[in-house]
């Protein structure tokens, strides 16, 4: 099984090298590709100097476009599993095994690494507003797709070959995680969740205020609603 880690990175000069070294230490069988989304800091030179496998986007595309580039890369090089992995050190590399398991066993097409599942002893649960937002989005998804997705905004996900192909062709750019999950559910792919641990950012800062959470939530709800209208259900095994 060829496994690829897709690492979108935008201005991650403080984290990217450590993240890549962690991956190399974790397993030599796993490939990774850093998608440098037009960073304005030293990310590019760090990637080049240390010979980390990377793609430099010629123009900034935002997280959706960057991640899709990774899926295109995975599709081009015939990977069996592609895992989205943040370049800021939030995701724990030790859970890669867990997140791949349902795909290897043939139980799922798309696996989401979830922070909020009870079994998870996650050290980082994120703020109250974000959790509330996640709850509401997952409620919307349950209404629209009849399946519970506890952590629809999680960026730690694994995709099998069929999903890689779907994402390489079409990937939402506005709110990629929840939107793509809804699209795949609507198309009849099997989506499961696996509890993972997420760490707090080691360096750099993440910009989330209560207002942006509310704004985000409303727009995501609308977006997934619109997404779900356009898709005809295809039956799949």
């Amino acid at each position: 099984m060829k496994v690829l880690l897709i690492i979108p990175a935008y201005n991650e000069e403080e984290n990217i090298l450590r993240v890549c070294r962690e991956i190399e230490e974790y397993s030599s069988e796993i490939d990774y590709v850093v998608i440098n989304d037009g960073s304005r800091d030293k990310t590019k030179s760090i990637l080049e100097e240390n010979h980390l496998n990377h793609v430099n986007l010629v123009h900034n595309l935002g997280i959706g476009g960057a991640v899709q580039t990774g899926y295109r890369y995975a599709y081009l090089h015939h990977y069996d599993i592609a895992i989205q992995f943040d370049g800021d050190g939030q995701h724990d590399i030790n859970y890669v095994k867990d997140i791949c398991e349902p795909i290897i066993e043939g139980k799922a097409n798309l696996v989401i690494g979830t922070r909020y599942l009870d079994k998870s002893k996650s050290s980082f649960q994120s703020t109250f507003m974000r959790r509330l937002g996640s709850r509401l989005i997952s409620f919307m998804i349950k209404c629209l797709c009849k399946q519970k997705i506890t952590d629809p905004t999680s960026g730690f996900r694994a995709a099998d070959k069929s999903i890689i192909e779907e994402f390489a062709k079409e990937y939402p750019t506005d709110y990629p995680e929840p939107e793509s999950t809804v699209c795949m559910l609507k198309k009849g792919y099997r989506v499961t969740e696996v509890p993972v641990n997420m760490k707090e950012r080691v360096a750099g800062k993440s910009f989330v205020s209560p207002w942006t959470s509310i704004d985000y939530m409303i727009k995501v709800s609308l977006a997934i609603f619109i997404d779900s209208i356009g898709i005809k259900k295809e039956r799949r095994k």
């Binding site: 793609v55 986007l57 010629v58 595309l61 476009g65 899709q68 580039t69 081009l76 750019t173």
Partner: peptide, 13 residues
Amino acid sequence: NILLVQEISLLKK
């Protein structure tokens, strides 16, 4: 545009 940026970047790589 997005498609072009992605394809060019992958080709460059």
